[in-house]
Amino acid sequence: MSQEFPYLKDAEDVVAVQRGPEPGGVAGAYRAFGETLRGLKTTMAQVFAGPITIQYPEEKTPVYPRFRGRHKLHRFEDTGLEKCVGCSLCAAACPADCIRVVAAENDPVDRVSAGERYAAVYEINLARCIFCGYCEVACPFDAITMGHEYEMADYNRGDLIFTKEMLLAESLEQTPLRREGE
């Protein structure tokens, strides 16, 4: 060996490598296409399972009840007064700084909310919102909650600033809900 590789000083440095089989034959063909065929098997199985995509926007993906979509502001069911008192705690909690509240004093004869004050301006810039839901957690009156709506694309950034009226309004379409465990 030292004659074959004269520069090797020590025979122990030599590692003998075993050669694989020569290409060709059945084994060769299997080695080339076997894994591909295995993948194709899965594909073929799915061809017969039928489609699982849905025809958006005719059909909508249902969401889980805890899904955090576009916010909603709420009114008391009995009195119709707004729950929001304009305390700005949501604005304080918001990490994206996308809520603006300007409060005003209620007129006792023509109340807007149940408390002493109400939100004269309530705006959420949905272009900035990260849907973390902190505002909902911060609200002491459950006046703001995260809804299920997720279709908020628009042509203008300005249109993504939702006003109090928009947030109070019932949404036109209901987002389908997924049942628990589904």
Partner: peptide, 9 residues
Amino acid sequence: YRFRARPWD
């Protein structure tokens, strides 16, 4: 100043 702003505004 009544209801004009909160300290974080």
